[in-house]
């Protein structure tokens, strides 16, 4: 087994585009779930409207990709309003059901044959982000050091993606130390108490949903631009579950939790994937037990298992402080 190559791949995965995408998605979830206590299980819906916002604006409407970004952001705000209006007054578990349903509605709608002309149906849309690569200041060639060597195109995507992560993280940091963030946290702890102190809980929940949703659509942008394609089935509910694992792994209600969580998550997935693939290829695991195709399925099992184990044994995340969580049991 080529351990060197496997480790190298794992390290690259920790800083790769997927790590950045899921860091952003999980930062959005952190605003929702970690700080405000909103159970949003449709984060992938925000990613999808962001990604399709660009793709449809460019390929169907013929607009510039930069306008497409605005379309995507606008769409995610509209989605937040649509989701929030009926559900934010209701119990937390209703929000979970409605958001997961909404994400599914979005995916089914984008892949429907009747909208093929606009969204490309099940095959999606491609080649809409040329403008992004056109402004790449890096000249042709490879950049980086050690295992972290990427082509000039990849490097450009990664630099912009991680810069976005940094800017968003700083925003979250500032906001959560502000009185605004204090109100969100008070809603997480007890929304009736917040209401009794004159806070418009509904409106703050809406702001939180929209803000976290916008961050989710940024994740969609990065994914769409980095792969130059959107496909409806990329945006299945499993993506939201992945983002939850990332968030809980890194620790909820911590600014850097989602970022660290995402890097570790993708490193671990890359490791298990590559080790299993190599083991199957080299016959360490008999083909009767696992085929190459099935390695991909193991990933989902591990994520499911990880979610269970984290919540049962370490709901504070791998770096969190157990005592803080115990305060939750009132």
């Amino acid at each position: 087994m080529n351990w060197g190559g496997i480790v190298e791949n794992a390290l690259r995965a920790a800083v790769g585009d997927f790590a950045a995408v899921f860091a952003l998605a999980a930062i959005g979830l952190n605003v929702h779930f970690g700080y405000t206590g909103l159970l949003n299980f449709g984060q992938v819906g925000f990613m999808a409207v962001g990604a399709y916002g660009i793709a449809v604006a460019v390929t169907y409407l013929g607009l510039s990709m930069w306008v497409g970004l605005a379309v995507g952001l606008g769409a995610s705000v509209v989605l937040a309003l649509l989701l929030g209006l009926p559900t934010l007054r209701l119990r937390a578990d209703y929000l979970a059901i409605v958001t997961i349903a909404a994400a599914e509605i979005i995916r089914l709608t984008f892949r429907s044959v009747s909208l093929r002309r606009y969204t490309g149906g099940s095959s999606g849309l491609t080649r809409f982000a040329d403008e992004f690569y056109a402004v790449n200041p890096l000249s042709r060639g490879d950049y980086g050091f050690g295992p972290f060597v990427f082509s000039h195109r990849q490097t450009w995507v990664l630099v912009v993606a991680w810069l976005t992560v940094a800017v968003v993280s700083v925003m979250v940091l500032v906001l959560m130390r502000s009185p605004w963030g204090r109100v969100l946290k008070s809603i997480r702890e007890d929304e009736e108490a917040a209401r009794s102190l004159g806070k418009n809980v509904y409106w703050y929940k809406m702001q939180s949903l929209a803000f976290g949703g916008i961050i989710g659509s940024l994740a969609g942008f990065v994914l769409a631009i980095s792969t130059q394609s959107v496909q409806p089935d990329t945006y299945s509910s499993a993506v939201t579950f992945f983002a939850y694992v990332v968030l809980i792994l890194g620790g909820t209600a911590r600014v850097l939790g989602p970022v660290v969580g995402s890097m570790i998550f993708w490193m671990l997935l890359s490791l298990t994937d590559n080790v299993l693939r190599a083991a199957v290829r080299e016959g360490h695991i008999p083909a009767a037990i696992m085929s190459g195709v099935q390695v991909g399925q193991v990933r989902f099992m591990l994520v499911g298992l990880g979610l269970i184990l984290l919540l049962v044994y370490r709901s504070q995340g791998i770096f969190g402080d157990r005592r803080e969580i115990e305060l939750d049991v009132r």
Binding site: L39, Y244, F300, M301, G304, I308, L311, V329
Partner: peptide, 19 residues
């Protein structure tokens, strides 16, 4: 264990079993 945590655990369980 809180109800929210139980809900998330059921999601993890669903994912695990489904795959």
């Amino acid at each position: 264990t809180g109800l929210i945590a139980l809900l998330v655990i059921s999601i993890g369980l669903g994912l695990l079993v489904r795959y």
